[in-house]
């Protein structure tokens, strides 16, 4: 059996066989990065900006499918996951969001902003020891993003943000199932380091737009907007679903250049 998407090469756009090309009117924008990279903040700001351009925006977050939620909670609480079942259940969650939400909205012409995408699985699951080409094939049913942003941050900076003030790190979040350390913070540090290495290794292969996450929030957002404008601007203007407003939008509004 020939495997699809195996042995990806560096320096090229996402392998043609890796995802399903998005031939729909809508656009798919994705943010990626380790925990504490600030990607979620940036995605939120971007979606506000798109909405201000009268573009219909929808949002999808990793690990948020209600269909899978209870099973996910059960698995985490009772520590039932293996790297493989962890990977498969997250893929189930992803498939549910893709089939029920992301795909229909893209067909309708909305811009879908995804906080984390298949790349999160490629980084995390492989950091757990799951076969690299197996997990890429697992997600081959996913639609190819129009733009993927990777928020690059040094490990210590990200860790500082996470370990600094948040709630306690959870078991699987810290990679405690891998026996990296008895200490949760230490385990988290090692695990996130592995994930970071996976992201870095796939940056070129997947065609990420890399944003320096140590810059100010404003500077990062400006870079994001510039890239969206440059790469998607024309098509967003032409075909994306405009969010409707009561009354006729003024000519000035509709002419607002992305």
């Amino acid at each position: 059996m020939r495997s699809r998407g195996s042995s990806p090469t560096h320096g090229s756009p996402p392998p043609a066989s890796l995802f399903v090309p998005n031939r729909f009117k809508g656009k798919l924008i994705v943010v990626e990065g380790i925990d504490g990279s600030g990607k979620s903040t940036q995605m939120s700001l971007l979606s506000h900006w798109l909405r201000s351009q009268m573009i219909a925006v929808a949002f999808s977050e990793w690990n948020s499918s209600p269909l899978v939620h209870e099973t996910m909670q059960r698995g985490k609480k009772k520590k039932m996951f293996t790297p493989t079942t962890f990977s498969l259940l997250h893929a189930t969650d992803f498939a549910d969001r893709m089939e029920r939400y992301i795909l229909p909205l893209l067909k309708a012409g909305a811009v879908v902003c995804a906080d984390r995408y298949a790349y999160t699985a490629f980084a995390r699951d492989v950091a757990r020891g799951v076969d690299r080409s197996w997990v890429r094939n697992l997600y081959s049913f996913a639609l190819r993003p129009g733009l993927s942003f990777y928020f690059r941050v040094p490990l210590e900076v990200a860790l500082g943000r996470i370990l600094g003030g948040r709630n306690a790190i959870k078991y699987y979040e810290a990679g405690m199932d891998l026996g990296l350390s008895h200490d949760v913070e230490e385990s988290f540090r090692i695990f996130q380091g592995r994930i970071l290495a996976e992201y870095e290794a796939m940056t070129q292969e997947m065609g990420f737009h890399v944003i320096d996450a140590t810059l100010s929030i404003e500077a990062q957002q400006q870079q994001m907007r510039d890239i969206v404008q440059k790469k998607l601007g024309k098509s967003l203007q032409a075909v994306a679903l405009r969010s409707l407003e009561r009354g006729t939008p003024s000519v000035d509004e509709t002419a607002a250049v992305l």
Partner: peptide, 30 residues
């Protein structure tokens, strides 16, 4: 891990084909 979730998913009306396949695969792998 997944028996209960699969049963509940099938009782609803939103279980898509790829999602179902992957849910069964999760069950199988477990």
């Amino acid at each position: 891990l997944a028996a209960k979730g699969i049963k509940q998913a099938k009782e609803g009306n939103t279980l898509g084909p790829v999602t179902m396949t992957l849910y069964y695969l999760t069950d199988f792998a477990d």
